[in-house]
Amino acid sequence: MTAPSLLRVPGELLESFGPLQPAVLPGRAGPLTAAARLLAESLLGDMGNRWLHTQGVAERAAGLAGPLGVDADLLTAAAWLHDIGYAPPLVVTGFHPLDGADHLTRNGWPVRVAGLVAYHSGARFVAAARGLSEMLAVYPDERTVLADALTYADQTVGPSGDRVDPDARYAEVLHRHGPCSWNARVDPERGPHLRAVARRVEHLLARAA
């Protein structure tokens, strides 16, 4: 299913994306999302639940963009791409946020997209535990509402693409990876971080309702 022509972003698409400051396009995705979906499918489309989860996260992100008032094209594109580092051809360090971000950078994607992928869902805590913080630090860690929205989308979609509660999702991840996993080791720091993200996003969603 891999298509080499999908692994780079066309120059005209990057020009249409414009500068790194996002235009707020509530509820609308665009050319960046279209390219991201094609790339994600080429890399993850044969990976069963990983692809189902990716599709669910992208759908969730698209639905969050309007209520949160963030750039739908950027958010949804990052959602399609957030787990591409799991694709076997991309695995270098074995840390999927970093491997995904590195692939995007090598293939001409905007640095802001790579940064969102690199830091999604509290990746910085796992990177620190694994001695990868310096490698991750080459990417921007923007800590914005849009970044929170990406993490919230990831943390409210289960492995098979079903919508779940953030606490249930986090518990499932810890159980699936096991008590000796990197996720378990950083739980004292990452768990509170993810709960804080969920509270922030849900507060904004309640205000927008």
Rank of each mutant, 00 (worst) to 15 (best):
L38A: 15
P88Q: 08
E12H: 14
G108I: 04
G66M: 03
A101H: 01
A168V: 15
R112N: 10
V70K: 05
R8W: 06
D99E: 07
A62I: 00
L146F: 05
G94D: 03
W182F: 08
V145H: 02
A35C: 13
E202F: 14
A61F: 01
R200M: 12
S121Q: 05
G94S: 06
A72S: 13
R185Y: 03
V138K: 15
A78Y: 00
G100H: 01
V24D: 14
L136P: 00
E202D: 14
R37Q: 15
P10F: 10
A123D: 04
Q55V: 08
V186Q: 02
V157S: 12
H120V: 10
D83C: 09
F95S: 06
R28S: 13
P159R: 14
P26M: 04
G11E: 13
S160Q: 10
D73M: 07
N107Y: 03
R176Q: 12
W80T: 02
R207G: 10
V57S: 14
L68D: 03
D71H: 09
V57M: 14
R28W: 12
R185N: 06
L75F: 01
D187P: 00
L205T: 02
G158T: 03
A209D: 15
L132E: 02
D165A: 10
A101I: 04
V91R: 13
A78G: 12
T93I: 04
S5G: 13
D46A: 15
R199C: 10
L204R: 15
P188N: 09
T144N: 13
A58M: 04
H120Q: 13
L68F: 11
T2Y: 14
D46F: 11
T151V: 12
H175E: 13
L25W: 08
T54E: 12
G115P: 01
L132Q: 02
H203L: 14
A72R: 05
F125N: 05
A72W: 00
L104F: 00
A58V: 00
D83E: 12
T2D: 11
G115T: 04
V57C: 15
D148A: 07
A40I: 01
P4G: 07
S16I: 07
A118L: 09
L146G: 05
P4D: 08
G115C: 06
L6C: 06
E172Q: 08
V24C: 14
T54W: 06
H120D: 11
Q155Y: 13
G122Q: 06
E142A: 12
G27R: 01
P26N: 08
G69N: 05
L14I: 13
L44R: 02
D71V: 02
R112S: 09
A72E: 05
W182N: 08
L174P: 01
G45C: 08
T151Y: 12
D102G: 06
L20C: 07
A114W: 00
A196I: 11
D141P: 02
S5I: 10
V24A: 15
G30F: 07
V145N: 01
P31T: 15
S16P: 01
G27Y: 00
R190M: 11
H82E: 13
Q55G: 08
L174R: 07
T156Q: 04
Y86P: 05
V173Y: 01
A62K: 03
R130P: 00
R124S: 14
T144P: 01
G100S: 03
L194T: 05
P88V: 10
A34Y: 06
P140E: 07
P31I: 15
G131K: 03
D148M: 09
Y170W: 12
A87I: 07
A34P: 00
